[in-house]
Nucleic acid binder design. Structure first.
Length: 347
DNA sequence: CTACCTCGAGCTCA
DNA sequence: CTCGAGGTAG
């Protein structure tokens, strides 16, 4: 099926391409890169909350890195729109930030009352980051805010590619108990004092990224290799049920599963598929990864959740029903019936 | 075997 | 958002 280029025509007659000729959306934001650049700009912002739709930027910071060294920095508070609150007596007060944010960042209403607005700061910020790769910790958080305000105030599409320290850290240091910036800095021996101001957080992020980079180099790890995913199907990382060996030697030759070939479909509720397969093998049976002409039992788990399953029947189930019609010795078992069967020591 | 799809779990940012 | 598990098509 060909998709074709998708185009919308605006009221003024201009056109915008929504997707390319392979059906892929034209990306407006940059790409999240799996790489270790030596030239990039670290970015961090402080905001009044988590949601770009309701919350505002109150500070931006950036560090320009060339050949792994800091060569320039950018920092500015930003005065947000603010809001009014009324006490019980109806007296109104004006605020830029609430107590929680002031406590967290140290940024006060007083400081913001003297700060420049986005209109002043954004053009200088754009000039500073230019078209650099942007490094950040959970960098999408910052990009989402920055993208929206740049579009709103300057009609500017922020399309710089990004490198996310959070994403890299999860892969490179999977044993960390979590991957908050604080945790990463502690584990890597990076000083994280005075955190939660944007320029300071840029420094901490930069130093953690440098440590991560050194770790990869010292251990001859190519970052791209860590992200190469083996598909779960096939003989890669996926467990081939046929290779499971029995853990015992004596079998009850009267058991229905003795020498029988079993196939599983769907997700089992009460145990993992490989454990169920082990039970089959321990009873003297065999397991298969798919329904074949050898299959004697098909054990059904749940596949309600799988949208590729149209009418509640997986492809394995459909194939099994067809084989039964063709006279194959094949029985379809629900998960519960399967457990009843394996619990019976003999018949 | 390769390529792609879908869902749920778990998580980080101020 | 990202990733792994499980599944489909050729």
């Amino acid at each position: 099926m060909s998709v074709g280029v998708s185009i919308i025509v605006n009221e003024d007659g201009t056109m915008e391409i929504l997707q390319d000729n392979k059906g892929r959306p034209i990306r407006e934001k940059g790409e999240s890169l799996i790489s270790i650049p030596s030239n990039y700009t670290v970015v961090d912002i402080e905001t009044t909350g988590f949601d770009p739709r309701y919350d505002e930027i109150i500070e931006v910071g950036a560090l320009k890195i060339r050949e792994g060294k800091i060569i320039d920095q950018f920092e500015s508070l930003i005065q947000p729109d603010g809001y009014y609150l009324y006490d019980d007596d109806g007296n109104e007060s004006f605020y830029y930030v609430d107590e929680f944010i002031t406590e967290l960042t140290g940024i006060t209403n007083e400081m913001l009352s003297k700060a420049p607005t986005l209109e002043k700061v954004l053009p200088r910020f754009i000039e500073f980051i230019n078209d650099d790769i942007l490094l950040g910790h959970n960098v999408h958080f910052d990009i989402n805010f920055l993208y929206d305000v740049l579009m709103e105030h300057l009609d500017y599409k922020l399309s710089n590619d990004m490198v996310d320290l959070l994403r890299l850290s999860r892969k490179v240091f999977p044993d960390f108990k979590n991957h908050k910036l604080e945790t990463i800095s502690i584990n890597l021996g990076v000083d994280n004092s005075n955190a939660h101001r944007s320029l300071r957080d840029c420094e901490i992020t930069y130093q953690c990224f440098s440590k991560l980079s050194e770790h990869l180099k010292a251990n001859n790890i190519i970052i791209e290799d860590l992200f190469k995913r083996k598909y779960s199907s096939g003989s890669g990382k996926h467990l081939d049920l046929r290779t499971i060996e029995a853990e015992n030697e004596d079998f009850d030759e009267e058991h229905l599963l003795f020498n029988a070939y079993c196939t599983f479909t769907g997700k089992l509720e009460k145990m993992e598929r490989k454990d169920a397969a082990q039970i089959v093998v321990n009873l003297g049976g065999h397991c298969l990864n798919s329904v074949t002409k050898k299959t004697n039992f098909l054990i059904l788990g749940n596949f309600d959740y799988n949208a590729t399953v149209k009418d509640g029947k997986s492809s394995k189930l459909k194939k099994a029903e067809q084989l039964i019609l063709n006279g194959q010795d094949l029985k379809i078992l629900s998960e519960d019936v399967f457990y009843d069967l394996v619990m019976e020591k003999s018949y």
